[in-house]
Design a protein around this nucleic acid. Structure first.
Length: 474
RNA sequence: GGAGAGGUGGCGGAGCGGUUGAACGCGCCGGAUUCGAAAUCCGGUAUGGCCUUCGGGUCAUCGGGGGUUCGAAUCCCCCCCUCUCCGCCA
């Protein structure tokens, strides 16, 4: 949610922001509706004030009269009744006027509300413009000694890389056929060491981020609509989300469907929704939370894209981190950089080549002011040559977002300056979130980069404690 | 799933159609007293919106949303949540 007051003062800022994100929202209409709404409110309130004054004045009198009317008879009763009717007439006249204004207000509020929820957070000035993910700009890259992603895999390793799906089949790590049988497209089954490696790397990442001072939180992954709207995933991302609910027969005896929950596509929803509608103490900030949660995504609109393998699936598990901090741009930016360094050290400890991308305005979601993606090198991706050997390519594994107070406004998540007993004003917090590790997508670089000439897979040293000391697969 | 009870300020707890934005108690803040503290006494102590000549004014909010009424914390309807008992169950 953007700051309506700020939009009123500087609508151009939000128009430009929306244009940079290629979002179509009618800012002028918002300004118009807002102005009209305030005009109506001011009128209604002064009428209400008048009505309240009158009511306070005549109220007790009406009460007394009512009592006397009960006891009175004949002409006395009708005289008192007339007196009471006159007293009632004053506030009653105001009532119809107020009702008129209120019905007009009720008419425009849903439209205003709907538009407000769709206005994107403007990208920061230092975020480059661009059409979409193809406009993202590489910031830096890292590779372990002895491997350079810009050179062919075979030339460096002495053998042609197998894809994770090939390796998976050889070692019985995953089963796509049965996954589809069970669950349809983009489904998979992890088996044997595949499942173990999946759990090992998630648990390793989880332990690493907990060691960085993040509080582990296991929050629900079926949430109410309010949490989806609050975290900024609804209404825009509704078609990406699975609904859960109960089938009941309606009055006509038909099977009626009512959604009463939504499967979250990221642990971010549970972590940020955790403090929804709260006023935190300034002393308690920053709040650093992490989770390991199931993630469900419809992948609507991605038909035909990345259909093979573990890259784009409907269900996965993810270790996620969020930071809720003071409304200070400097602090916010500092946490953004810090979260990325956690990921970098994680990837370095696993010896996986990666690069950082500054996402361009066109690739930012509605809620982000800034986003840094991390991509790992995946030998099975990229263009395929005449011998059928893929060139390898970067694939997104992480995404770190900086949101200012956009999300906390929606969540109504504030803090009070001056600590627990302080008398300071309340302010919306800033929020940030980042992937720590998402699997099974992460198994792609993990398996493919650790494969050996004989087809075996070396388990990185840091993961061995999570694999009962096992050093290799195959 | 069945039956019942209930949701009021930071907390406890009154009120159940009109000077109630809400008694009283606790907590918290400021002051007095004190060498200092405890105790005591006095005062203060919600959030959000709109307007503002920046002094303030005003509206809304007693789980949420509608309704009745000149007037609703109080009456009616729908929803959400909590608790108790029974049933079922990883």
């Amino acid at each position: 949610m953007i700051d309506l007051k700020h939009l009123r003062e500087d609508p151009e800022h939000y128009k430009k922001g929306a244009a940079r994100k290629h979002a179509r929202v009618d800012i002028d209409r918002v300004v118009e509706l807002d102005a009209r709404k305030r005009e109506l409110m001011t009128k209604r309130e002064s009428l209400k004030a008048e009505q309240n004054t009158l009511s306070k004045e005549s109220g007790p009198k009406i009460g007394q009269l009512a009592g006397r009317i009960k006891k009175a008879v004949g002409a006395e009763a009708s005289r008192l009744q007339a007196e009471m009717d006159e007293l009632k007439a004053g506030p009653a006249r105001l009532k119809s006027e107020i009702e008129g204004l209120e019905s007009e207000l009720a008419g425009l509020e849903p439209e205003l509300e709907k538009l407000l929820l769709m206005i994107p957070q403007p990208p920061d000035p230092d975020v480059p413009d661009g059409p979409g993910s193809e406009g993202n700009v590489e910031i830096r890259r890292w590779s372990p000694p002895g491997f350079d992603p810009s050179k062919p895999f075979a030339g460096q390793k002495g053998f042609v890389a197998k894809s994770h799906t090939e390796l998976g089949e050889v070692h019985g790590l995953m089963d796509f056929e049965r996954g589809v049988k069970l669950s349809g497209s983009r489904s998979y089954v992890l088996t044997g060491d595949g499942f173990r490696l999946h759990q090992a790397v998630l648990r390793y990442a989880f332990d690493q981020i907990v060691a960085q001072g993040f509080t582990p939180v296991s929050a629900p992954s079926i949430v109410r609509e309010k949490a989806m709207v609050g975290t900024g995933f609804f209404p825009a991302g509704r078609e990406q989300t699975y609904e859960v609910g109960i089938h009941e027969a309606n009055d006509a005896g038909e099977r009626a469907w009512e959604a009463d929950g939504y499967l979250t596509g990221t642990g971010e929803v549970g972590l940020m929704g955790f403090h929804m509608d709260e006023i935190l103490d300034e002393d308690d900030l920053p709040i650093k939370l992490c989770t390991l949660s199931p993630c469900y995504r419809r992948e609507a609109g991605a038909a035909g894209k990345d259909t093979a393998g573990l890259y784009r699936v409907h269900y996965f598990e993810k270790v996620e981190q969020v930071v809720i901090c003071k409304a200070d741009e400097g602090e916010s930016r500092q946490w953004h950089r810090k979260m990325i360094t956690y990921v970098e050290s994680l990837l370095q400890s696993l010896n996986l080549p990666y690069r950082l991308l500054q996402c361009c305005a066109g690739d930012l979601g509605q809620k982000n002011a800034d986003m840094i993606d991390v991509e790992c090198w995946m030998p099975s991706r990229g263009e395929v040559d005449k011998d059928g050997v893929p060139a390898g390519d970067w694939g997104e594994t992480h995404s770190a977002s900086r949101l200012y107070d956009f999300q906390c406004r929606r969540l109504n998540l504030r803090y009070r300056a001056g600590g627990a007993n302080g008398k300071g004003a309340t302010t919306f917090c800033h929020s940030l979130n980042n992937t720590v590790l998402a699997s099974p997508r992460f198994l792609i670089p993990l398996i493919e980069m650790n494969q050996n000439a004989d087809g075996s897979i070396t388990i990185p040293e840091v993961l061995r404690p999570y694999m009962n000391g096992q050093e290799r697969i195959g």
